[in-house]
């Protein structure tokens, strides 16, 4: 059974079909990139995968449970337990330190554990920046805090929306290296991106256009990159 399975997903906003009969399977440990021009339905697809929205039609099976039919409250609980979100704008709470930002995720999930949060920051190479506020961190560092926050509760899927969109090349490479490492450790990654370079290093690249999947290509670049 796939970790995530989208069956005949359609999402309508009024007369507009943002997604039209999309079928997609994501296996455990897979690294999938979703690309497409603006208005192709990427964000809608990401919101549905990220349990932030429900489709108008179709089934979304996450770990075998259909999230298209659950209440908003249950959807929140599923998002909390199974999804780790990485944002283009990082979205850190600006008055909390890097460490506290990671702990916020633990706070909503279960019990805050400072040690564990510190380890997550160490994993993204920011242990020594734990007590810094977001305003004292560079964009790349903020994105790494965001990734540490996404990882902290051991989610089933790490869903990243344009994770490198606001970063320079050096920081982009750092972030992608972290993704490679996560992938190697068996994490399931879904990355929505504009950037062909980011898209191409995924195991599977899905091109979305006008709400339908236009193409799907497999590559072994992800593993190669890690080996490199």
């Amino acid at each position: 059974m796939s970790l995530l399975e989208l069956k005949n997903i359609t999402k309508r906003y009024g007369n507009l079909k943002a997604l039209d009969n999309v079928n997609l399977k994501v296996e455990q440990g897979e690294w999938v990139a979703i690309m497409g021009p603006s208005g192709s339905g990427k964000s809608t697809l990401m919101n549905i995968i990220g349990c932030m929205d429900k489709p108008t039609e179709g089934e979304v099976l996450l770990d075998g449970a259909d999230i298209a039919k659950v209440s908003d409250k249950e959807l929140t609980a599923i998002r909390r337990d199974k999804i780790g979100l990485v944002f283009q704008q990082f979205h850190l709470v600006n008055y909390l330190t890097a460490l506290e930002n990671v702990m916020v995720s633990q706070y909503y999930h279960s019990i805050p554990d400072e040690e564990e949060a510190l380890m997550a920051l160490e994993r993204v190479g920011l242990k020594d920046r734990a007590k810094h506020l977001p305003s004292q961190l560079s964009g790349g560092e903020q994105q790494r805090v965001c990734i540490a926050r996404a990882l902290i509760n051991h989610p089933e899927i790490i869903l990243a929306d344009e994770p490198t969109g606001n970063l320079d090349e050096a920081n982009e490479n750092i972030v992608l290296d972290i993704f490679r490492q996560l992938h190697k450790e068996g994490a399931t990654l879904v990355v929505v991106t504009h950037d062909p370079e980011v898209g191409e290093i995924a195991e599977r690249l899905i091109i979305l256009e006008h709400g339908v999947i236009k193409s799907e290509t497999k590559s072994s670049a992800a593993d190669d990159a890690v080996i490199k």
Binding site: G50, M52, K73, T76, A77, R79, R80, D81, L85, H91, V93, N94, V104, S105, Y108, H109, R149
Partner: peptide
């Protein structure tokens, strides 16, 4: 509002 949105995205319940 953005922070509230973020907390919701992180899985915070409305009550919380």
């Amino acid at each position: 509002r953005k922070e509230i949105g973020l907390r919701k995205a992180l899985g915070a319940s409305d009550k919380s």
